[in-house]
Amino acid sequence: MEATPLSTSPTTQETCNCESVCFVGSEATLPADVALDCQVEKIYYGDFLAVRDSYVPIHKNQITGFIGPSGCGKSTVLKSINRMNDLIRGFRFEGKVHFHGMDIYDKSVDPVSVRRNIGMVFQQPNPFALSIYENVAFGLRLNRFKGDMDEQVEKALRGAAIWDEVKNKLKNNGLSLSGGQQQRLCIARAIATEPRVLLMDEPCSALDPIATRQIEELMIQLKEKYTVAIVTHNMQQAVRVADQTAFFAVDISSGGRTGYLVEMAPTKELFENPQQKLTKEYLHGDFS
């Protein structure tokens, strides 16, 4: 996949004036606190233009929330960040994702090693059909972890706030846990290898309110050590957990359904003083 040069200006499309309002202005000074810089020009599935012109810097040790109506491409952008979309037929990415001094879409980059450094938690809890212990140890074994496996597994389970619930049944199958526990197990599995960035794709959408709350509290603890990006369908959740919020919307003007970034700002700022009319309407509940 050849990334086209960034000079093709996105401002030619009149619907996107995000350039003037989002973080582009501070781009030059950013890198210090930006862990990962996601610059989407175009994302295609086959001929279908799914997302365009979305520049989303992910700040270090903060939670970046992606919100927006269904089909606005927020999940697509998130999954592009660790090249999960490569698994989908016809997926094509134009743009750059700067991470650790490299563009992860560069030809020389191995998507497998990208995914080992950028962890992912999915919408549906998806533990492996293995024991709780082996689920967490999975990534460590994959990376030929040399240290004390038991210790690292315990650390990850503690980090995911599930240790006390499972410490006496580490040999039980991961699938025997409740939905909320499974999701925390998946988080433990993802953080066991200590990735720099943790991506979460609507991690609470399959969970009840109590489990959701536990996961949210967990996310806030996690940002001390990790950089987190989360897609959520729930605006209140973004308010509760996200430091930065990116609002995506769907552009149907050209006949398709193309998602794009409307506005990105620190969460408080975005919700209290949205710069875009569309953001205001969405936050106000005029459409969803």
């Binding site: 999960m84 497998v112 995914r115 549906q124 999975f138 993802a190």
Partner: peptide, 18 residues
């Protein structure tokens, strides 16, 4: 085999063979 399970493996950084 449930697709989310395979995705989890890829998400962990497994090669297709792994």
């Amino acid at each position: 085999v449930p697709r989310p399970m395979k995705e989890a493996a890829y998400g962990m950084g497994c090669t297709p063979a792994q």
